[in-house]
């Protein structure tokens, strides 16, 4: 019913209606305020975009220690450049592409000298229970968390390209496609179709596993 071109035009509409773009319209204002000395604005930027930077780093499959260091480096550099960011409205894309570049350097430097691991950087806090769980009946919670784990496992086993794209897309709040493009070095126009394809593949895996 559609020609080849029609679906991609439909996909192209998606990025601009996604939450990220809307919720981040004030990023430019926050960046300018932070540059002028407003620490609360800085905190708001960190809280709004920190999860995106984390997602970009996680999408690149670094060791925990590398992931932590890249994350820090990105924010240190952003703080350093704060008053000089050319397009404050695109701070999310700036952070994403900086994170990507640092991740790629880690891969290039795979044989880098092993430096002493800083033990407190290796603390894992991911296993903290979700607060919502206390609201559920114990059995329901167990079933739910089993479902979440199964979903995550299938996600982890997707092809590398899909896993990477989805890991960035599922940052919270959802990133704009411009940010995703900066994070992964892929054209904005190809994100929609790839996303569709990857989610379809993930759905198929779940169904093959009898999760439906």
């Amino acid at each position: 019913m559609r020609t080849g071109a029609a679906p991609s035009a439909a996909y192209d509409d998606v990025p601009y209606t996604r939450g990220g773009t809307v919720e981040r319209t004030d990023v430019g204002a926050l960046v300018r305020s932070a540059a002028d000395g407003d620490a609360a604005a800085w905190k708001a930027i960190v809280e709004g975009l920190g999860p995106l930077v984390w997602s970009v780093v996680r999408a690149h499959r670094l060791s925990d220690a590398d992931a932590h260091e890249v994350y820090q480096t990105v924010w240190f550099r952003f703080a350093q450049h704060l008053g000089r960011i050319r397009e404050p409205d695109k701070a999310g894309a700036w952070l994403s592409s900086t994170a990507r570049n640092e991740c790629l350097k880690v891969h290039r430097n795979a044989r880098r000298l092993m430096l002493t691991d800083d033990p407190h950087l290796l603390d894992r806090v991911s296993e903290d229970g979700a607060p919502e769980q206390s609201l559920l009946e114990a059995e329901e919670a167990a079933a739910q968390s089993e479902r979440v784990r199964r979903l995550w496992q299938e996600f982890e086993e997707l092809g590398e390209r899909c896993r990477q794209l989805l890991r960035v897309l599922i940052a919270s709040p959802p990133p704009s496609y411009q940010e995703v493009s900066a994070a992964l070095g892929i054209a904005v126009g190809s994100i929609g179709p790839l996303r569709q394809r990857c989610l379809r593949r993930l759905r198929a895996r779940l169904e093959a596993r009898g999760a439906a």
């Binding site: 984390w54 806090v125 991911s126 903290d128 979440v148 996600f155």
Partner: peptide
């Protein structure tokens, strides 16, 4: 659903 899973299993420390 995947976003919620990430928030539980791989959150920003």
């Amino acid at each position: 659903e995947l976003r919620r899973a990430a928030a539980v299993l791989d959150p920003l420390p």
